[in-house]
Write a protein that binds this DNA or RNA. Sequence first.
DNA 1: GCAATAAGCGCG
DNA 2: AAAGCGCGCTTATTGC
Length: 597
Amino acid sequence: MTGPARTGGSAPDERAGGARVGGVRQAGGVLVLVSRAVGGGAAPVRVRGVDDEAPHGVVGREAAPRWVWADTSAWYPRLLADGVRVERCLDLRLAHRVVRLAPGVSASPVATGPRGEFDGPTPAAPGAGDDALFAVDDRDAAPDEAACRAEVAALDQALSSEQAPDGAPDPAPDRAVALARLRLLLAAESAGALAAAEMHHAGVPWDTAAHDDVLRGLLGPRPRPGQRPVRLEELATAVREALDAPTLNPDSLPDVLRALRRVGLPVTSTRQWELEHLDHPAIAPLLEYKKLSRLHSANGWAWLDGWVDGGRFRPEYVVGGVVTGRWGSSGGGALQLPRQLRGAVRADPGWRLVVADAAQLEPRVLAGLARDERLAAAGRGHDLYGAMVDAGVVAERALAKVGMLGALYGGTTGPSAAVLPRLARAYPDALGFVEAAARAGERGEVVATLLGRGSPPPDEAWLASQARALSDEAGAREESRARTVSRGWGRFTRNFVVQGTAAEWALAWIAQVRRRLWAMGESGPAGRAPAPFARRPHLVYFLHDELVVHAPADLAPAVADEVRAAAAAAGRLLFGDFPVEFPLTAGVAERYGDAKG
DNA sequence: GCAATAAGCGCG
DNA sequence: AAAGCGCGCTTATTGC
């Protein structure tokens, strides 16, 4: 078995940007530009590479430098390792990928040109265990100086509102707005990339003993490698007895399915929701086995060994890793930390965690996106769903929630679908907006978020299935199949506009938080956090609509205020004067999970 | 024997 | 009959 540490062995500072030669990092031909504005034409200062010229000196010479580089995740970790913080940057690879798919600039050379070195992911450097013979010299893969300069110019041209298309004297006002929004998106993505690298650098403060306590309480003492914990072994025995299957392996799905059917249970899978309503003595221990087994394998002692080091969990965030613009993560399952274990996230002595969570983010984003005054009004206050009940739209809060989720995801069955007509009557602009996005997707069109991120076009297979259904000899089966596929894509585009715009709000929020935290300055004696954060509040965790700041205790209440102010600022950045609010539940605590609004 | 896939479940 | 979106990770199984 390869352990989790092995899987995540390529730390970002071992990635492209310089090749490892004989264990010594070489700067290679990768360019770092420093300019005063994003693609603003200011003469860049060239840094030949952070190994060649001390970055501290370069930053010090510039008033408000904006670093321009091919890839934040390739460069920034090394600056941070030297204790250097970058205030602003332009990440060319992230920018390129946004412009490539943005419907608003689909005619620009960046969008129409062939796939190039800014389209792909960061080339992974060879891991520690790989054979040197097959190691890739990533100097070939990393864009060189000329490529970076050309990319800056191409982005500049694509996003410039100075130049109207087709030689028209002035760009249309709405086009100027669209371009300004795209520029904001690029800035937000880049700021997010900085925050992501900083969070990896700082790490999540992790209380290994508390984690171990949770595991021992639920599973029993740590077993020898390859052995089941005692609690799991007990449950396995109970399941075997209840099913009269002495050799049953509870980890084998076909095995379990066969055994359940043999005792007469009409199951087609071993999914929790299918099992939980069955009345049989094997079900309870089986479900508990599955739950605990999951905890053991995904976040058990092996996870602790592999991912927590020196009291810090350091996941790698993948900015722009999800089509909608959300972040992904790699290593340790950072975005799936079970709630059970959040008590193991614990502030250092003399420090606190500030935990903030945007309440009902997606419905509020939809209200702003669709400029739905009535939905925005329902969200003015803390509980949007409660306000929907008070407005007489639905009878109870649970229905408001499930109905709204159905509208966002495209639910077609159950109580969610049942209340949709009421929501459509109460909030025609909001519901009409997601409905239009769904219809566009069904037709094979692309849709866009508020700031202009485009959805990926449907692939060849999608187009082929639609074409087949339209041909004369298409049978009923083919037509129904094509309809199913088309509706599936409509659900994706429906959700894309909301999830993607929510991700943009979150980027703006985190960018604001990051800036405001730095502006708070230093406090108290140096803690365990690495430079440049040893005496400063800093972000340590981000989860779509939730963030955690690690702060010196005396600053924590002020940090909570800044986080709230940042949310309001993010709302104004995206939605201007439109009266949509973004309340947070924010609290100060020693442990993540203890924080209350 | 190793790589890809499926099932299932954790998170929002 | 089934089909509410987006992910990452682990294990067992299948495929080459």
